[in-house]
């Protein structure tokens, strides 16, 4: 079926089978491999993208549900080679190690810094509970997002 959507500001019209998941559309059809797949139960959040301003797990969204949507993936965070504050934060505060969870964490952070006022450690830890990271122990991810909040 034909689907039109905007990804990172670019319009795409694609023809995919109806059972295609958004994450496959992004990775396999549009070759935006920054968005990762870490599980098959919607548990890990490695696939998180922004859809119409909200962080969603793209492995739980059918491509057709994104018809007409505005999507932002990790590839769309930096503008003209300038890192977004959340990216800066992750670099400054060592918010990543292997980098596999990172794209999902970054776009979630992007939503949080744009929409939440209270980014206390406690609040942030709760907000991160849908995204797993095996490497960092989360503390530096929290610090990275707080750093970014100061900058936006």
């Amino acid at each position: 079926m034909e689907i039109s959507l905007t990804v990172n500001g670019e319009k795409h019209t694609v023809d995919v089978p109806p059972n295609t998941l958004l994450v496959y559309l992004l990775r396999e059809v549009l070759n935006l491999t920054g968005t990762h797949i870490g599980c098959d139960t919607s548990s890990c959040g490695a696939c998180t993208v922004i859809m119409n301003g909200k962080a969603v797990k793209s492995c739980t969204v059918f491509a057709f549900q994104a018809d007409g949507a505005e999507i932002i993936t990790v590839e769309g965070l930096a503008k003209n080679g300038e890192l977004h504050p959340v990216q800066e934060g992750f670099m400054e505060k060592h918010g990543l190690q292997c980098g596999f969870c990172t794209p999902g964490m970054l776009v979630l952070a992007y939503e949080l810094v744009n929409t939440e006022e209270d980014l206390s450690e406690e609040k942030l830890r709760k907000a991160l509970k849908g995204n797993l990271c095996r490497c960092t122990g989360y503390q530096k991810i929290v610090e990275a997002i707080q750093y970014a909040k100061e900058k936006v």
Binding site: T35, L96, G99, T102, P103
Partner: peptide, 19 residues
């Protein structure tokens, strides 16, 4: 020192096996 490996990983240009 901030990590040199970060830039590719935070901009979506990591190259993992599934890619």
């Amino acid at each position: 020192v901030k990590r040199k490996e970060d830039r590719r990983l935070i901009t979506g240009y990591g190259e993992f096996l599934e890619d």
